[in-house]
Design a binder for these strands. Structure first.
Lengths: 206, 206, 206, 206
DNA sequence: CGGTAATCGAGACGGTACGTCAAGTCTTGGC
DNA sequence: GCCAAGACTTGACGTACCGTCTCGATTACCG
């Protein structure tokens, strides 16, 4: 058996209340923003008792996290996979363009910032995020790079973890800190720079 | 003529109260963490009236930001400069090692996360951060890369902004999300990968 | 035919649950006091479902009332009777001494105050109290006075109801309001004053 | 110096908030009854923050008590005095008639029961009641009886405290327990019985 | 150099939300 | 159909802070 906490009897949990809570949380995140998001507000919007929220979630961050989880579950069929046309640069560009489109979308901006900061302050949440939300995505990214590596397009001794961070890290950072615009051009430069590296690259052998 | 009801008369500002407030804010950030930081608490700790804080700072985030500003001002003499021994890889390694040492230091971890969070949620603060705190540092980083570029160690057409993000982005991201340990080995891998790029690199010409 | 949706089928009632509930209620009244007595607490202490309590009692006061009823039933054999030695003053003194002993007993103080205040706020409960608990007692008191009246010890035209209230009213009041100590001496003074009245009493005829 | 608690600075207390609170408490007591009286409700009705109530009163009962105090203060000029026409019986009748009129008045019934209940359960409150509200009244009652005593209308050795309780005790008890109607006739019987006592009274000497 | 206006510490105020407790209703599974 | 158990919505609890608002008591500038 695997349950960690004994207290509430999960079998009797009201699924309708759970979904209402998560939906309300996500909606409110868009509407009022992270700073004004309150358990009280979520409960009221969801038509749910506060106690029900406190019974099933340890923190506001956990609710927000589960709201994202619900969203990603309802969106997907199976684990995520990155496109693989054989053209790595094109595939990465396509994926990152979709990413910045989402990051630039006002509907998702606030909620994702909320999630990011909750994660930054709550290690337990960070672990859950790494495992349940980011993990599968990271696997897909690594997998795409491995495929390119096997096709000889990437260095044999490449550290795939670092490679993934090298491509997505700058983008996420720029978004979170608003240190610059997230444009298609920026994406291109990131990908090109990451692939080629900072050092001068001798002309391809004739 | 100027606005009739302008901001308070800065000339009369009590410097002792200002410093006490910022010091208290930073200390409390370490002690109780970001989530439990309150204006009331800062005022009490600083032996300062709440009104004094509200008079001079628009938000809690602004106080936290100023606390960092005070810290960085008291630490420095003039704008920051990265070491330049001619050996880029060694210099970057040295700087990044110092960076992760700070990020791993429990005294700074909480406060810096607080700052990151406030910035993520407050565009105005983000602008101030970009200009006053991060700006000079970024200039120094760019300058070091430019120096290497001029020495022929980096590609001529390298986008220095992207290059800087490529090196520091992954590290900051890993720290903020706790997606992996910040070790010397990790730093090495990041620097090597960034410099060489993901693509296979033909052996240096004989 | 009877009402279709009447009260639950009393025949099926679980006597063990009933007694457990009432005992738990009385015990808790002593332990945690009236203000902190809760249905939830009673149910937990009795090992009984909350619904079972709500099924059989209309209010917390009703449970408390029944708890007293259970107590008085188990204590007695038949209706109460006051001692009648022929010496009215002595008999009254004996009974009132027993009364104040109970009122001063910490085991009964809290529960009886609870009962008294529930009665004060709930007319229906007051009626039940008057009929089931206080009624028989009052009959006994009246009966003792009537006996004395017939023996020529009390005025012929005496209003027995008022007479009873005149003796017990001051004592109960003093207890409830804590307006003075309940001592044997106090009892004596009450009885003497009630018997003689406030007016000067001419010396008994020779 | 005499202050008992240091915490709130009574000098800065807002008199308007105080009066609004007490008035709201009294009004709500009439409207919703004692059982549904809540601090939250009082605060809302008074347009006052909850904290302001908690700052100045230790319990709901204390608020109710102060509400009565405010009422009695605003009603009076100086300490209360009972009428003294020389005819004790008539004077007592007049006073008790006024008393039962108040007790029978639906505007005061609920609030006074609330006060009685709070007193019954809170010894500290009972002491305050005895001193501030009931005390002066009891003095007046005793004084009237003493006057009659000096006029030879009452027994020389009469215990005035007990005498007062003997007259008012039965009335209050009957009201609190609803054990009978409070009518003019009842008042007459109480007074007559108390004055004459229970024992047969020989005809006044010719 | 004394008058006066702004700032200061302090903290009361009307509020909002917190996280908890209990009320009374409803559902599930066992007897 | 009653029962124990306990999840549910509701509403109040008493507390912590919010941001605004007085209060005297220092300042520090200005006439």
């Amino acid at each position: 058996m695997t349950t960690r906490r004994a207290s509430p009897n999960a079998a009797r949990r009201n699924e309708a209340s759970r979904r209402a809570t998560l939906t309300a949380a996500f909606d409110l995140l868009q509407e009022v923003g992270y700073a004004k998001l309150s358990i009280e507000g979520i409960a009221a919007r969801a038509g749910v008792g506060k106690q029900t929220i406190y019974r099933w979630w340890p923190s506001k961050g956990a609710v927000v996290f589960d709201a994202f989880l619900l969203l990603s579950e309802s969106a997907e069929g199976g684990p995520p996979v990155l496109p693989d046309t054989g053209d790595l640069e094109a595939d990465l560009t396509a994926v990152l363009l979709a990413t910045i489109e989402e990051l630039n979308d006002p509907r998702y901006d606030q909620p994702m910032r909320a999630l990011a900061t909750e994660i930054a302050h709550d290690p337990e949440l960070a672990a859950a995020y790494a495992e349940r939300l980011d993990g599968p995505l990271k696997d897909a990214k690594r997998q795409r790079l491995r495929s390119a590596q096997q096709a000889g397009q990437l260095a044999d001794d490449l550290d795939l973890d670092v490679a993934v961070e090298m491509i997505w890290g700058p983008v996420l950072n720029r978004w979170l800190q608003r240190s610059g615009p997230l444009t298609a051009d920026y994406i291109d430069r990131v990908i090109t720079t990451a692939l080629n590296g900072l050092r001068p690259r001798p002309p391809a052998a004739g």
